[in-house]
Design a binder for these strands. Structure first.
Lengths: 192, 192
DNA sequence: GTCTATACACAGATAGAC
DNA sequence: GTCTATCTGTGTATAGAC
């Protein structure tokens, strides 16, 4: 539960972000949000139109943070392969899953175009970002010319998203790392 | 909603399987199950101890079916690579997601060891099954000796699970196929 | 076995006092 | 802005009639 160091509205947003990550949209009730934020019913309906409106604000912020975190790895120094390694190996709370990807399994999020949009945009952006890096690598001769940037970008992001699934099922982050290692072996540049 | 061609208990199980697939565990209420099954409150509590008990029965059945479907592709004819292709390309209701994998994002399933067990066992089984096929391929010289069966198995299954995430986010099955194509390019045997 | 009736807490939202 | 009522429906389960 957040202290009074934040405004009520901020505490509501941050509490919602946490709960959406932990329990998804259908699993998160206004009551739970209010308790965590230390606010009363009135505050939430003063600052937001209701649960979907507050969730939208929370999701947008989380999406922006995720994009920034991905960019820190993908836009860092090194060869294209090294940047993809940095992305795949970056620090993650593996057992918590992806705060954006998990929303794709939420029926109420998927049924609401406004809520789905930031999810779609974020994953598409990461996919395309990786795709561009793969094309860079091809141009530099690090990757084989038969690789398709879009396909590899999708495969890399899918491995991450699926890695979360395997790790959560097993109750251990190891499965995530195993899947990543497998993909990286397959993607390794020819050490000509 | 199911007709009277099934027993009440069967209709309850099948309705639960559908709803767990569509809406997950937290998103599925006994009331919705009863409506779909065309049964009254009493029937459910006569045949099952409650929602978790009914869900466990439903999940176990779905897990068994998923394993069988995977085995039909993985245990089919062809080289190791071809069998993995068959698995990755098998007919799927992509936009519905994986009926087992999606449960890993359900907080109440993950918090209940009995409910999580069949999820874990199923995904582990598929992972290991693919791992063995990769080892076969290595023995036959189809795959490079530096590939680790366990890692590739995890990467293949993660691509599938993550492919569902990408497809659902985009609202189109194409993203799934794109990711699969990318992985298959990377995994393609050296056409020595 | 299946039904309806009942129970009580929670989900989501509104009203109006301070 | 924030709070405490208050409201209607739903979630999950039990009781007891048929």
């Amino acid at each position: 539960m957040y202290t009074a160091l934040m405004s009520t509205s901020e505490r509501l947003i941050e509490s919602t972000r946490e709960l959406l990550w932990e329990r998804g949209y259908v699993g998160t009730s206004p009551k739970a949000i209010l308790e965590r934020a230390g606010a009363g019913q009135g505050s939430m309906y003063h600052h937001f139109k209701g649960k979907p409106d507050l969730a939208l604000t929370a999701i947008r912020r989380t999406a922006e943070e995720l994009r920034a975190a991905a960019e820190r790895a993908l836009g860092g120094p090194g060869t294209p392969y090294e940047r993809i390694v940095a992305y795949l190996r970056r620090e993650r709370a593996v057992l918590r899953g992806c705060p954006i990807g998990r929303l794709t399994m939420d029926p109420d999020v998927m049924a609401n175009d406004e809520l789905r949009a930031p999810v779609d945009e974020t994953l598409t952006w990461i996919r395309d970002r990786i795709a561009g890096i793969v094309e860079e690598g091809k141009a530099q001769g690090q990757f084989a010319p038969e690789l398709d940037g879009g396909e590899i970008g999708a495969a890399v992001l899918a491995t991450v998203q699926g890695g979360y699934v395997l790790a959560r099922a097993a109750g251990s982050p190891a499965a995530f790392d195993t899947a990543v290692s497998g993909l990286l072996t397959l993607l390794a540049p020819r050490t000509a």
